[in-house]
């Protein structure tokens, strides 16, 4: 390069930076290689039936190295199994220790890990951490009290309560918890019919989460389909933008190019419930008539579609058609 060396970052610094970056990539490569080798069946068989120690010694492998290798291999195996469960079962549990010294139940916490697969990849898992609120002593202090309460606590000792969670507020976790993980009744006589059902709770929660992500993905698809047709169609009024309008991503705001706006309401599973488009959205249309429904536009948009995905498909088709027409 002919340009003079810039004064501020000296070439040495740049070199150091690049070397550091290289180190980190190499380190991560090393990690990946290690785990791959450790989880390969041949290695595990080798580790379980090691060749004679004399052979090993020739290669400089001492029993301590072998031991640590075995240790890592077992860890890797456990991790692989966990990953497999997480991938396939999508709901897994784990145990956590609450760092709070005053935590209930000695700080034992049950974690629920919910995987969501959307848009072609695994999202970061959602966690629900539960503790046994009625299990008894917070510290080890209130033993006397516990004896007294023991009678009615017997049944509820294993009842769980949501302690911490990372569920977004648009998923009705509290409602689900109230339905499937109700709190123990405050008085004894009260409803005995209450039951906790962790499995059901987990299933329904996961369902809601997956639905939510699918709705989001559908809206993204819709937007992509709209943005894809960037050839200006001469006659038709183009949709300009599509945005989710509420927390649950069940309602979509649609904006047309001429300022018209519309709303599409979809159900839990992406079926179209209602569509409305308004004429003359108060913009610079000038026609004094107040906004009314524009069924034409709606028909053009939705057609026979029953689900939002159908609309996406329709848009994609019309888009490609328009592109072909433009090409011809």
């Amino acid at each position: 390069m002919s340009s003079p060396i810039p004064s501020t970052p000296s070439p040495l610094d740049a070199e150091i930076e690049s070397l550091k970056a290289k180190i980190t990539t190499l380190k991560s490569h090393l990690r990946i290689q290690t785990s791959t080798i450790l989880s390969s069946p041949s290695v595990s068989s080798l580790l379980s039936n090691p060749p004679s120690s004399s052979q090993l010694k020739q290669k400089g492998i001492t029993p301590t190295i072998l031991k640590s290798l075995r240790h890592y291999a077992s860890l890797q195996k456990a991790h692989n199994q966990q990953s497999l469960y997480r991938t396939c079962a999508t709901i897994t549990t784990f145990r956590v220790q609450d760092p709070d010294p005053n935590a209930v139940d000695g700080g034992a916490v049950l974690g629920l890990r919910i995987e969501v697969f959307a848009r072609g990849r695994f999202m970061r898992p959602y966690y629900v951490l539960m503790n046994r609120a009625c299990a008894g002593p917070g510290g080890r202090k209130e033993k006397k009290k516990k004896k007294k309460k023991n009678k009615n606590q017997g049944k509820y000792a294993t009842w769980l309560r949501v302690h911490r969670h990372t569920i977004p507020p648009c998923v009705p976790l509290s409602g689900l918890a109230a339905r499937h993980l109700p709190a123990p009744p405050s008085r004894e006589e009260e409803d005995e019919g209450r039951e906790q059902d962790l499995a059901k709770f987990a299933r329904r929660l996961r369902r809601e989460l997956v639905r939510y992500h699918h709705r989001l993905a559908t809206i993204t698809d819709l937007r992509r389909a709209i943005l894809a047709e960037d050839e200006p169609r001469t006659n038709a009024n183009k949709i300009q933008d599509v945005t989710p309008a509420d927390a649950e991503a069940k309602q979509i705001t649609i904006e047309w190019e001429d300022g018209q706006t519309g709303r599409l309401v979809m159900g839990d599973d992406g079926e179209i419930l209602k569509v409305v488009a308004l004429t003359g959205s108060g913009g610079g249309q000038g026609n004094g008539s107040a906004s009314g429904r524009d069924r034409e536009v709606v028909r053009e948009l939705v057609g026979q579609a029953k689900r939002v995905e159908d609309v996406v498909r329709r848009l994609a088709v019309t888009g490609s058609k328009a592109a072909e027409a433009a090409a011809a």
Partner: peptide, 15 residues
């Protein structure tokens, strides 16, 4: 590091 922040189950690297 980018590793470990996503916690995807497809990550084989031992965390």
């Amino acid at each position: 590091r980018k590793r470990g922040n996503r916690e995807t189950p497809l990550d084989t690297v031992l965390p």
